[in-house]
């Protein structure tokens, strides 16, 4: 009984330690070392452009909605929509094939050409 009281914690500790070590070591054996493309720094510029495009699109979307709710007056809307559209278009152009020669421009996404949102 006394022996069990001393030995049991030791066994338990050893078991936990071994289990933890196996878990920690497992990626070293099982996973591949291949770095993913996104970690390459050359893509940083492209990511920046993509983010810029999404920001510009979101800003346009928001401006339209704010205009519709009345938060942005007609005049403010007319003043702002032009530059915002131009900025968004610039990012779209910057992201076109030249920046990405390995894939044809159209195949990136199937863009359903639906209702225009020019309100």
């Amino acid at each position: 009984m006394m022996v069990a009281l001393i030995v049991l914690p030791v066994i338990l500790t050893a078991a936990v330690t071994i289990a933890a070590m196996l878990y920690v070591a497992s990626p070293l054996v099982r996973e591949s070392e291949l770095p993913r493309a996104s970690s390459a720094d050359g893509l940083a510029r492209r990511l920046e452009l993509v983010e810029e495009r999404d920001r510009a699109l979101a800003a346009l979307k928001e401006l339209e909605f704010d205009h519709r709710t009345g938060k942005v007056s007609d005049r403010d809307y007319r003043e702002q929509v032009g530059p915002l559209r131009r900025r968004a278009a610039e990012t779209l152009r910057a992201l076109e094939p030249a920046a990405k020669p390995d894939r044809p421009a159209g195949s990136r996404r199937a863009t359903p050409s639906r209702a225009k949102v020019r309100s």
């Binding site: 699109l57 979101a58 979307k61 007319r78 968004a88 278009a89 863009t111 359903p112 225009k116 949102v117």
Partner: peptide
């Protein structure tokens, strides 16, 4: 500075403008 930008659509290349509208529709 943008001299005549009361309405910005006219400045955009029509193809680009269409792509822009498609992108916006996609967001919706």
């Amino acid at each position: 500075a943008k001299p005549h930008l009361v309405n910005g659509f006219s400045e955009l290349d029509p193809k680009l403008a269409r792509r822009l509208d498609e992108e916006l529709a996609l967001l919706d």
